[in-house]
Simulated scan of single mutants.
Amino acid sequence: MATIYQVAERAGVSLSTVSRVLNGKTTVNATLKAKVEKAMLELNYRPNSVARSLATSRSDSVGILVSELNTPFFGDLMQGVESTLRVADKHVIITVGHNNLETEQDAVEFLISRNCDALIMHAEAMRDEDLVALNEKRLPIALVNRQVTGLENNCIALDNEKGGYLATSHLLELGHKDIAYISGPMKIRDACHRLKGHKRALEEAGVPYNPMLTYEGNYEEEDGKIGLLELLSRDTPFSALVCANDWMASGAMSCARDLGMSLPQDLSIVGFDDVVFAHHVYPRLTTVSNPIADMAKMSAQYILNTLYGHTHHVQHLFEPTLVVRESTMAHDG
């Protein structure tokens, strides 16, 4: 196996020049850099990551904390972060928090124990003050889909309240007034904000909010099925349903068909997130876009800027948009 000494000898440069090239220093003369890279290629030289870490006090690894692994939403998040960091020759270590305080805290300690340079987090249970302390006293963090006072520059978020507003406003514009809602768990911020947007749309349209038309789910497909059955059992008629994510919307659609309903003739349904299967279900799902892949990319670029000296543009707040497909239709009642 080739050594750094052989690379320097082949390139005709000093060891320090090879070291600066390996560490990505921008002060290296372009001609010398080309010689070093040519020598590395000819010798099939691979830098020793452990030695490089000791020399730079960095591991070139970034920890990712997500809430779950079993949904397209978090798959897109992880893919967006990993692909952005890989281009910069950084690597990721992934763990899961399950929206539980103790599990999230354990996950953070695990990532720190693996010498991650920074963390990119989709964390719901940890308190704002704990996240501020983590960023100030231990290592840099970026937060996805969450806004924390004191960490404004670290946060990459979606306007979830506007997303909830867009979903319900669409149904109101179609003539629906009796609109049911299956929310996410109220302990999660984005679920609260989406429900708040739903209520705002109703209020602006002069339609009273009826708590009998709301069911609290857990962002899982089964919650859409159970939620629809529960809402129907309350004998409070509704012609449309908003679900706070596409998984629950998919479950509600499946349940409605099992009950013999025609969609959207008997029930218009709107989801949230616009995950990959939203345009494969039947009828294709009207939903609210949640550009999680773009948000993930921005969180990675924020870490690259903060820790590794890059100069990427970082967008901190994303606007949702309504994606109209065939799961909704005008209501004459």
Rank of each mutant, 00 (worst) to 15 (best):
S49R: 10
V66Q: 12
A51R: 06
L43M: 04
V62H: 02
V66I: 09
Y45E: 00
S49I: 13
A55I: 09
A55F: 01
L41G: 10
S53K: 05
S61I: 10
E68P: 08
E68C: 10
V50I: 15
S67C: 08
S59V: 06
V66N: 06
S67N: 10
L65N: 01
S53G: 15
V62I: 09
V50L: 14
L69I: 12
A55W: 13
A39G: 07
S59H: 04
K38A: 08
K38Q: 12
E42K: 02
A51L: 06
L54T: 08
T71F: 04
N44M: 11
T56E: 05
E42A: 06
I64D: 10
T71V: 11
N44L: 10
V50H: 14
A39Y: 01
P47W: 06
S49N: 15
D60M: 09
K38N: 10
R58C: 06
R46T: 11
E68T: 15
T71W: 11
R46C: 05
V62F: 06
V62M: 06
N70F: 11
Y45S: 00
R46V: 13
I64K: 02
L43G: 01
R46F: 12
V50K: 09
E68Q: 12
L54V: 02
S57T: 05
S59F: 12
S57G: 05
Y45W: 04
A39W: 00
G63P: 09
E42C: 03
G63K: 07
P47F: 05
S67L: 13
A51Q: 08
V50E: 03
S57K: 08
S53T: 05
M40F: 03
Y45H: 00
L43I: 02
G63S: 06
S53C: 02
R46Y: 09
S49Q: 15
S59E: 02
L69N: 12
L41I: 09
T56W: 07
G63I: 01
T71C: 07
L41S: 11
N44A: 13
S53D: 13
K38G: 07
S57L: 13
I64Y: 07
P47Q: 04
E68V: 13
N48H: 04
E37C: 08
R58P: 11
S59D: 14
A51M: 05
L43S: 02
D60K: 10
A39K: 00
N70C: 13
R58S: 15
L41V: 10
I64R: 02
V50S: 10
S61H: 13
L43C: 03
E68K: 15
S49P: 14
E37T: 07
G63E: 05
N44I: 04
S59T: 03
L54D: 04
M40L: 07
S49Y: 10
N44F: 06
R58N: 14
A55P: 08
K38I: 03
E37Q: 09
L54H: 11
S57H: 15
E42H: 01
M40G: 03
T71Y: 08
L43R: 01
N48S: 05
M40H: 01
R58Y: 11
E42R: 03
V50M: 14
A39D: 03
V50D: 09
A39V: 01
N44G: 08
Y45T: 01
K38T: 12
T56D: 08
L41M: 12
I64F: 05
V50Q: 09
L41K: 15
Y45K: 00
S49C: 15
N70R: 11
